[in-house]
Each structure stands twice: as structure tokens, then as C-alpha cells.
Simulated scan of single mutants.
Amino acid sequence: MRGQAGKYRIIAPSRFGYLGSTIPDDSSPSAQARAYLELLDSLSIEQVYVLGTSAGGTIAIRFALAYPERTKGLVLYSSASPWPEEPKKYSKHEGPPAFFCKDYPMWLLRPLLRPLMGMSKDTVYTMLPLGKRKQGMQIDAKIVNPGMAGNFAEYPIEELQVPSLIIAAKDDNLADSRSMEQVLSRFPNATWLPFEDGGHLMVGHEKEIENARDNFVRDNP
């Protein structure tokens, strides 16, 4: 999807398995980053600011590492966090059980969205029907979310050649801001913007985030 938001041109592709997108045999973060590159080539766009939210942060980091010449800056918004060091063990499945990847169970869970994710229970209506997201959620749980742990050597954060803007909320139980804060020193040129509240969607901080984004783009043209 392409669009225009104020003074910025936005390109928002659906990641593998989401909203009817294709699912290739290789659905790894590296393969998804290559798909972004092919999209930019097809649109004749030389450089972009890459924004990754939640599981999409893993893909954004992989893109910035693999294609620094095409990346002006990396923005991580409620993003999955890299690891401080290679883990000896990690979960091979990081996501909801298959049973919950259905409309009715997810609808029943809506009262838990605020205590678990800091989201209004009405957020569930922006997620349904899950049939358009189920395969993407499964790819994230099995491949993307464990990716930075299982393929630690593919994420040498210290070698990032682009500036980063990292935004997180302390009450976000999906993307732990404490984990991200612990690895900030791995990012060579990072701006850290934490909030006390707001949840996974950082509700109530739209103006502060907009200002931080504008400053980031201005300082890293």
C-alpha cells in the first residue's frame, strides 16, 4: 500500500502472510528484507527511513543491516528487541497458540487487552477477521520472533551504519521496553524515547512521537 501522510510519502507493504500477501517457502526475516528491497527497486526509490513495529522490528533491523546504502534511518516503535548476547536457550515459538488465532477466542480475550498489552478492548475490532492475519501471525511466532535469538550472528547491531530512533512504552507487555533499554549500548547512533504508559500502541503520545519523528528526519536527511 502506498499513501501520503502530510509531508511524508508512506509505503506500507503487508509482511508475508498478512492481508492476503504471498507466503514463499523462505519466510525468514532476511527473505522479507529482500522483498522490501525488490519493492523499492520496482518503485525506483533509492533510500527510505525504515519503520518497524512489534515483530516487524526484526525485519526493519535486518533490512538496515543488510542494505545500509538504501536506509536513511531506522525507526523502532514498540519493537522486538535484539539480545544483549547470544542466548544458550530460547523459546522456539513466540506468539499466541494456534487456538487463539481465531476470531471468537480473540474476541473473548478483549477484556485482557488492556492489562496484557495496554490496549483498549475495542482494539480487537481492528484485528478481526483474523483469517487475514492468521498465517502472518504463525510465521511471526515460529520464524520472525525467535529470529534474533536463533540467528544471533545475523544481527550484529554494533555494525549498524544508520541512525536509529527507538520508541517504547514501559507498560507494553508485548515489547518489553526494559529489554530494549538493556541493549541500547549496542546501537551505534540511537535516540531513545521511552514513555511511562501508552501500551503497545503508545496511545496518548502521538504529538511527542510526531515531533521526535520530524526531528529525526531533519537531523538525518
Score class of each variant (00 low, 15 high):
L128F: 03
F187C: 03
A190W: 00
T191C: 08
A141L: 06
P163K: 04
A169C: 10
S177I: 01
M127E: 12
K170W: 12
I166E: 04
N173I: 02
F152D: 07
G136C: 13
V183W: 02
N189L: 05
Q161L: 09
N189W: 00
D176W: 09
E158R: 12
R114P: 00
L201W: 11
L193A: 02
D176V: 05
F195N: 07
I157H: 04
T191V: 13
L112E: 03
L160F: 01
L116A: 13
L113S: 03
N151P: 00
I139S: 08
M137C: 14
P115S: 11
E159V: 01
E154V: 00
L184Y: 00
V144H: 02
N145L: 08
P129R: 03
R186L: 15
G147Y: 15
R186T: 03
G136W: 12
D171C: 05
I157W: 03
E158F: 02
V144E: 01
N145P: 01
L201M: 12
D172I: 15
K142T: 09
V124N: 07
K121M: 11
A175S: 15
P156C: 02
P129I: 09
P188E: 08
M180T: 14
V183N: 13
T191M: 07
A168E: 13
Y125W: 12
F187P: 03
A149C: 04
L201S: 09
P146K: 09
T191N: 05
P156Y: 06
M117T: 13
K121Y: 06
N145D: 02
D176E: 15
L130Q: 01
S179I: 03
A168P: 02
A153L: 13
P188N: 06
R133W: 13
M137N: 12
I167G: 01
T191D: 08
P115V: 11
S120C: 02
I166K: 03
S177F: 05
P156W: 08
L193I: 11
L116D: 04
I167P: 03
N189Q: 13
D197F: 12
N173S: 10
P194K: 07
P146V: 06
L116N: 09
K134A: 13
Q161E: 13
Q135M: 12
A153P: 00
K121E: 10
G198E: 07
L130A: 01
S164R: 03
Q138G: 12
N151G: 10
A168C: 14
D122R: 14
F195Y: 10
G199Q: 09
F187W: 06
M148Y: 07
I157G: 05
A153H: 15
T123K: 04
L201D: 11
A149E: 14
L184D: 02
L165T: 05
K134N: 03
A168S: 15
P146H: 08
G131I: 12
D171K: 08
A169V: 10
F195R: 05
L113M: 15
A153V: 13
M119P: 01
N173M: 11
I143N: 06
D171W: 06
P146Y: 07
Y125D: 09
G150W: 01
G198T: 04
D171T: 07
E158P: 02
P115Q: 09
G147E: 15
M117N: 14
M180N: 04
E181R: 14
H200R: 10
P115N: 10
K134C: 06
I167T: 00
R133L: 14
K121D: 10
P156N: 10
T126M: 12
R133V: 07
